[in-house]
């Protein structure tokens, strides 16, 4: 165990997997200079054959991943900001998410797409989306939402070794956050939620970037005499429904916290699953704490108001606990 930054954990996972398997390649815009920090040092270690800058042409970056995977590589595409997934969406939605089915199981797509999502840095609307619900709805791609350095390392290693297209979503501007990372060849399985905090009064299900403010909210709740349990699904596809249902049964009071826009958010889906499969255990309506149905404004004060923070989470959790 050692304390490491989130970005460092991603970097370690890339280095370890590229060392482990010569078929692993990494490409994207400005990955050689490591503009996002997470690809630092790869060029010196592995050379331009296996890590390369590309032109700004996302439609081709995602499509090439399909072809390179079909021809035997394990492909890591760094999309930089997750809004650029939209520019490259055709090959994602029409090719990589569908080819395994459409070819009757012939096509195997070991592709990992890294992208940074979310607001809080005054990047304005075209660089601040939390667009992963659209990916969740595609059907044929996995979606990993690592919230801690340990999960960043473990989920990325699992993604690169896996045989399904996987989105590895990192919260923007949070790469400097520290956490304990297990030593050695550490992997985290997909579809296994983590309990970040135990509690008996209310369950807070926190997705990705929302884990941190949710844990802060739990501390505030504790001061008010409410014991909140905090669950991190870690991957949205596959989703650990079993753990979420068990959590619902434990407290009967659920709040789902998600940085996506509210309408058809991941929180909406989780709320629907619990209404469907744990209705009898619920003591209060399942509440969602999300971003309103707006795109992210630029001004820091306006942006702050849109993104769930500890105060908002704590307020809604308190209402739910006392409902």
């Amino acid at each position: 165990m050692a304390r490491k930054r989130y970005t460092h954990a991603i970097n370690e996972a890339l280095i370890e997997e590229m060392s482990r398997d010569p078929r692993v390649i990494v490409y994207g815009e400005d990955v050689e200079l490591a503009i996002m920090g997470d690809t630092r040092g790869l060029l010196d270690r592995f050379g331009r054959e296996r890590i390369r800058n590309t032109p700004i042409c996302e439609a081709t970056l995602t499509g090439m991943a399909v072809g390179a995977a079909a021809a035997g590589c394990r492909v890591v595409v760094h999309m930089m900001f997750s809004n650029f997934i939209y520019t490259g969406f055709d090959a994602i939605a029409n090719q990589m998410a569908k080819l395994h089915l459409m070819t009757g199981g012939q096509a195997v797509m070991p592709i990992t797409i890294i992208a940074a999502y979310g607001g809080g840095a005054s990047n304005a609307a075209q660089h601040s989306d939390s667009g992963y619900p659209a990916l969740v709805n595609l059907g044929g791609v996995n979606v990993a939402m690592p919230a801690t350095p340990a999960d960043a390392k473990g989920l990325l290693k699992s993604a690169i070794r896996g045989n399904n297209p996987t989105f590895f979503m990192e919260a923007i501007g949070r790469g400097g956050e520290m956490g304990e990372v297990p030593d050695g060849d550490y992997t985290v399985p997909f579809g296994k939620a983590a309990t970040a905090r135990e509690g008996r009064d209310v369950t807070l299900i926190a997705i990705g970037s929302m884990l941190k403010p949710t844990l802060e909210a739990a501390k505030k709740l504790e001061a008010a005499g409410i014991q909140a349990e905090v669950i991190d699904p870690r991957t949205l596809v596959p989703l650990d429904e079993e753990a979420l249902i068990a959590a619902a049964r434990k407290t009967g009071r659920i709040v789902v916290v998600d940085e996506a826009r509210d309408r058809c958010s991941a929180a909406s889906h989780i709320a629907a699953v619990l209404a469907d499969k744990a209705f009898g255990a619920l003591k209060a309506p399942v509440k969602r704490v999300t971003v309103p149905n707006v795109c992210m404004p630029y001004a820091p004060n306006a942006e702050k108001r849109m993104i769930p923070d500890a105060d908002r989470i704590a307020r809604i959790a308190t209402e739910t606990a006392r409902a």
């Binding site: 081709t60 970056l61 090439m64 991943a65 995977a69 079909a70 021809a71 090959a91």
Partner: peptide, 11 residues
Amino acid sequence: FAIATGAALAS
């Protein structure tokens, strides 16, 4: 287009 380009890159 891009699938073939990616296959050529892998080659």
